[in-house]
Computed example of a mutant assay.
Amino acid sequence: MAFFKKFFTHVIPQKDPDKSTVTVKDKPKPPYYGTVTPYPKFDATSDASTLQSAIKKVDKDVIFAILVKRSNEQRQKIKAVYEASAGQSLDKALQSVLHSHLEDLSLALISTPAHFDAYLFRKATKGLGTREHILVEILATRTNQEIRDLKRVYKEVYKTELEEVIKSETNGDFTTALLAMLKANKDESTEVNGDLAKRDAEILFEAGEKTKGTNVSAFIDILTTRSAPQLCKTFQQYATVSDITLPKAVQLELKGDIEDCLIDIVKCSWNTSAFFAEKLHHAMKGLGTNEDTLIRVLVSRSEIDLKKIVQEYKAMYGISLQEAIRRDTKEHFESALLALCGPE
């Protein structure tokens, strides 16, 4: 529970120290926290030609110089032009010259976000064992529209409904929680209802600490349908009806996959960037490196909030994310990940 020791001393919503707005015709533009931006003077034809030449020469520097410095939308245009001119799938072309983690990274970069999520879901549920934490990570951190896109693409690519996959690969309350998130009906407003927060806190207290046994459905219903700001207010209200925090109550009342699932939902609601910073830290902590996690997080968040994740990492662990990556990776894989992170 180290995460909560660090973050439950703060008041939510947290203020972003570098938050600013850009005004266009007197209308504020939301701040951008991604590290990858559209490449200026973009030319899909020129990039596709350069990429084709680099693949033939197996010039990894040039391949990744293009892939990590273009937005996902630009990569999709490059991919379309490449395949039209080369007469070959860009995926297969990259697979023919790149291997291991470089291959995985390149394929992640040229996938649309929905296709990448579908691939991650498929990989997490195939073979021996299920990587439950990846399923929770995806469903807890995507918008309603992103989840709807994920379901559509998964059905198109793998010819199976995602609901059926979850039912076959998980069980019990954990299945119920995943299916609840998969409905993609979470409140996404920024407004906070104090009365609702107080009522939800009391319901959660009644469902857990106050009664014998645990009404898990009450926890699932509230944690999977309320907005992040609303849940943060509920967490604060919970402290007025209980002597312990809500995460601690979940830890005491529940065990196994459902405990981990609900704890992760709480973490994401409290501070999504810190949630991902913790993921990256564990991927590089101790002996060995979990390259899959580095690729998954850095690629999927590079146009959303990776700048904030980088800031949280430094605040939580005392070194920059870039320095941690330099310590744990090398050569082309290192340079590509550092380019995604942006300058220190």
Rank of each mutant, 00 (worst) to 15 (best):
residue 163 E to W: 06
residue 162 L to M: 07
residue 234 T to N: 11
residue 286 G to M: 02
residue 27 K to P: 07
residue 78 I to C: 05
residue 257 D to P: 02
residue 128 L to N: 06
residue 295 I to L: 06
residue 65 A to H: 05
residue 267 K to Q: 14
residue 198 K to L: 03
residue 242 S to P: 09
residue 52 Q to V: 09
residue 157 V to Y: 07
residue 252 L to R: 11
residue 261 C to F: 14
residue 58 V to I: 13
residue 319 I to R: 12
residue 150 L to W: 14
residue 159 K to N: 10
residue 65 A to P: 06
residue 48 A to T: 11
residue 156 E to I: 11
residue 316 M to V: 00
residue 21 T to I: 08
residue 297 V to S: 05
residue 202 E to G: 07
residue 19 K to Y: 09
residue 185 N to V: 07
residue 299 V to W: 04
residue 60 K to C: 11
residue 113 P to S: 03
residue 192 V to E: 02
residue 190 T to L: 08
residue 327 R to T: 11
residue 113 P to M: 09
residue 24 V to E: 14
residue 115 H to V: 13
residue 222 I to T: 15
residue 109 L to C: 04
residue 113 P to L: 09
residue 80 A to D: 09
residue 278 E to G: 00
residue 22 V to W: 06
residue 105 L to T: 15
residue 290 N to A: 05
residue 117 D to P: 10
residue 248 K to S: 03
residue 200 D to H: 12
residue 270 W to S: 10
residue 300 S to W: 03
residue 34 G to Y: 06
residue 62 V to P: 03
residue 193 N to M: 04
residue 223 L to I: 10
residue 21 T to F: 15
residue 77 K to A: 14
residue 75 R to H: 12
residue 68 V to M: 07
residue 330 K to P: 04
residue 300 S to H: 00
residue 73 E to I: 01
residue 268 C to T: 06
residue 98 L to P: 11
residue 109 L to E: 13
residue 336 A to D: 01
residue 208 G to S: 10
residue 43 D to Q: 03
residue 214 T to Y: 10
residue 128 L to Y: 07
residue 42 F to R: 00
residue 309 I to P: 13
residue 225 T to V: 11
residue 236 Q to P: 02
residue 210 K to I: 04
residue 101 H to N: 15
residue 41 K to G: 00
residue 248 K to P: 02
residue 89 S to Q: 12
residue 101 H to S: 04
residue 46 S to L: 10
residue 130 T to N: 09
residue 90 L to G: 03
residue 259 E to M: 09
